[in-house]
Design a protein around this nucleic acid. Structure first.
Lengths: 233, 233
DNA sequence: ATGAGCAATATTTTCGAAAATAGGCAAAAA
DNA sequence: TTTTTGCCTATTTTCGAAAATATTGCTCAT
């Protein structure tokens, strides 16, 4: 095989380190880099074409996001997946997302409503176009992420939003993991539409209940379908 | 003046980078490094005696904790302090700390109770010894931090605990800032004792109410005494 | 005066070599 | 056989030089 990717290239971020963090994050979330896999510098240098220190900076970023764990003097590895971690993550996500969506509904203006509606529309379009398997579809994943982000974007809490985004990534890794072992994706279209309606109808209590249930159900399904590959808590 | 600190030394962490992050964090939280102050590599290299890349790794860590902000290609600076940020931070802290303390009370065992009690005892001892000005006292700060940490330690939520710790640091910076401008520290001893009693009495509702009010009142006082040095939100 | 263009300087970002550290293997001692 | 000790190798961690990028200050045309 040809030893590809000798030279680093910038795609996303402005600096090479943030760019590599972006690419690494993607590979971890999509499970191309498997849980527990050890991240050796020599190997990373080969596949990303960057030097020790640049890689080290990128890894440091991902440690803070909980996608990579560092054992000092003993290198880095992809964060493990466990049932315990999934439960912990789910609890944290519900707590934060419920708070954010409630405040978003209180504070959201017309632009916010428009954004929520158009994000849902885009999501629906993609699902129509590929009704069978949108779960593995990168475009659907992006639209899905953006819809959920739109819902909470008017909350006015940068701190919690940042935490939320990092938890979303961690959760997406579990979703991808379970998708590998599930016969067909759960149909979330109805849930998304109901969420949108509760949000723009300014029905905060209902929106909070819906999002909590949405996150919990997804998590339960992950636990059900992926329990074989997840280390017991 | 003698140009001190040419050679780096390890005090806390196992690696130099984590050690420097530790020291930098401390300098930022205690406002020896002032909000908005730009963190130039040459200057840092001089005072910490480490190389570019090691410093860069330490700064990356602090960016994730919200104590440093990075503008790509334009360096790092100490995170600004604003009223808006203080409100955001306070909201996030109350949301998370209330959840953690409730679950800690549900799950805490005998060791947890003992730990809470002994942490409070240590705190009280220090306050007795220096009744006038324990606010600037590093030992008191450490005991204070440990008491509050003990309360939530049985929650069993590593994710939220990690976020909590990072928010605690950010809040401590604001507390230190206001202490500079306040005639005498507010007496929190009674509040701490009440918290302990509610916790080991397994009165979750009361403990949650107390911690929320404790955080909110502290924040209000910071806003009151430090508003002069805090940029308007 | 004013602003655009350009050179000079300051600063950040990236690199690969060198130092430090951990883990394993083999030989010697118990 | 089992344990200990001391190399040797694999790997991480740190360094300072070099490249890339931003900023400042100057010149010149308008």
């Amino acid at each position: 095989m040809t030893t590809t990717a000798l030279k680093a290239r910038k795609e996303f971020g402005k600096t090479l380190a943030s760019d590599i963090a972006h690419r690494l994050r993607n590979e971890i979330v999509t499970c191309q880099l498997k849980p527990n896999e050890s991240l050796k510098f020599d190997a990373l240098r080969l596949s990303f074409g960057a030097s020790f220190t640049t890689l080290r900076e990128a890894l440091t970023l991902l440690v803070a996001e909980g996608l990579v764990v560092a054992e000092e003097q003993r290198g880095y590895k992809v964060a493990p997946v466990t049932l315990e971690d999934l439960h912990d993550l789910t609890h944290a996500r519900i707590l934060i997302e419920v708070d954010l969506i409630r405040r978003s509904i209180e504070r959201g203006d017309d632009d916010w409503e428009i954004r929520v509606i158009s994000c849902l529309h885009r999501l629906a379009k993609i699902e129509e176009r590929a009704p069978e398997d949108y779960a593995g579809n990168a475009e659907w994943k992006s639209a899905h992420r953006q819809f959920h982000e739109a819902l909470v974007l008017a909350s006015g809490s940068p701190t919690l939003l940042a935490v939320r985004n990092s938890l979303f990534d961690r959760a997406e890794r579990y979703r991808n993991l379970s998708a590998l072992y599930r016969p067909r994706p759960r149909d979330k279209a109805g849930e998304h539409r109901a969420l949108m309606q509760a949000a723009i109808g300014r029905n905060a209590d209902q929106a909070c209940a819906l999002i909590a249930s949405h996150i919990q159900t997804t998590s339960d399904n992950v636990a059900k379908y992926a329990s074989g590959v997840i280390n017991a808590g």
